[in-house]
C-alpha cells in the first residue's frame, strides 16, 4: 500500500517542531507500525538525512518504551495495543497518517517523537514500592492471598508505564498510572503498612511533576494498551481520601 505520513520533527526541546510530509510506497500489511517507520528511516539514512527518532525497544508490547500519537490517539486506534504491536493491516492504501509525540506538559520532547517520561519514575521513587530489604523473608506460602485480590492486583500491575494515559487525558492527568500502582499494593497484604503514606506521596509527586487532575473523562482507559480499568482511579480516590482522613487524625 501507499501512504502519506505527516510526522512531527523537532530538533530538541528548545526549538519549535513542525509536521513534515513523507510518501511511502510498498508498505506491506504484515509490517508493524514501527517496521514501517524503520523502512522510512532506512531510506532517509541512504539519502543522508537525519532519521526520525522514536523510542522503542522490546517490540512485544511489554517494555512500554514505544509511544507515538497516531492520528490523534496514543498508540493508535487499535484498542489495547501498543504502537509496536499495531500492524499496517489496520490501515488502507492511500491513507494519510499523522504521527506525533506523546503530548503532556510533564513529558517534554527530547527530539522528534522521543519524549522524557522520567516524571513517572519520580512518582515511583516517592512511594511505588513495598519497603523490604533483600534478606530472609518468611516462606512465600505462609501468606495466603485470596485469588480474587491477587488477580485484581495483577490487573493493576499489568501497567507498562508508557504514558499513554497522561498523553490522552484532556487534563494531562497521570491518575491511571498512579492508580494502578497504588491499587496493586492496596489490594495485597504486603502493601498495608505503607498504604497511607504511599497514596499521599505518589499523588503529591504527581501534582508536583505538573500532571493535571482527573475529571472522569475516561480517555486514559480508552488509550491504555493494557486495558487498565478506570475503576482503579475510583480506588485511588478512595485510598487518597482514606489516607487524608487518617493522616489528619494523627494531628
Amino acid at each position: 500500500m501507499k501512504l502519506t505520513l505527516m510526522i512531527w520533527r523537532q530538533e530538541c526541546c528548545k526549538k519549535d517542531g513542525k509536521m513534515e510530509k513523507y510518501f511511502l510506497d510498498n508498505v506491506e500489511e504484515e509490517m508493524s507500525f514501527l517496521e514501517m517507520l524503520d523502512v522510512l528511516n532506512e531510506r532517509l539514512i541512504l539519502e543522508g538525512k537525519d532519521p526520525i527518532a522514536f523510542d522503542h525497544d522490546c517490540r512485544e508490547g511489554i517494555c512500554g518504551a514505544c509511544s507515538l500519537v497516531i492520528n490523534g490517539v496514543p498508540h493508535g486506534h487499535h484498542k489495547g495495543t501498543t504502537t509496536c504491536q499495531l500492524h499496517m493491516r489496520k490501515f488502507k492504501d492511500g491513507d494519510t497518517i499523522y504521527v506525533e509525540p506523546f503530548r503532556n506538559k510533564a513529558f517534554p520532547v527530547i527530539k522528534d517523537l522521543v519524549v522524557d517520561r522520567t516524571a513517572y519514575d519520580r512518582i515511583m521513587n516517592s512511594g511505588g514500592f513495598v519497603s523490604i530489604n533483600t534478606g530472609n523473608p518468611k516462606d512465600a506460602n505462609s501468606l495466603p492471598i485470596s485469588k480474587i485480590n491477587a488477580d485484581l492486583a495483577m490487573d493493576a500491575a499489568a501497567c507498562i508505564g508508557c504514558g499513554a494515559c497522561a498523553s490522552s487525558c484532556p487534563n494531562g492527568s497521570a491518575m491511571l498510572f498512579v492508580a494502578a500502582k497504588v491499587s496493586q499494593f492496596a489490594l495485597l497484604p504486603q502493601g498495608q503498612p505503607e498504604r497511607t503514606k504511599r497514596a499521599l506521596a505518589m499523588v503529591r509527586t504527581m501534582d508536583e511533576e505538573g500532571f493535571g487532575n482527573c475529571t472522569n473523562m475516561y480517555e486514559c482507559e480508552a488509550a491504555c494498551p493494557k486495558n487498565i480499568s478506570v475503576r482503579f482511579i475510583a480506588r485511588l480516590n478512595r485510598e487518597y481520601i482514606r489516607a487524608r482522613l487518617s493522616e489528619e487524625k494523627k494531628i
Binding site: F129, V130, I132, T134, G135, N136, P137, K138, D139, A140, L143, P144, I145, S146, K147, A150, D151, A153, M154, A157, Q184, F185, L188, Q190, G191
Partner: peptide, 16 residues
C-alpha cells in the same frame, strides 16, 4: 519468598 514479600502478584489457587 523475596518477590512475594515485595508484592509481586504471582498466580494463586483459590486457597490463596
Amino acid at each position: 519468598d523475596q518477590c512475594v514479600a515485595q508484592g509481586v502478584p504471582f498466580a494463586r489457587e483459590y486457597g490463596g
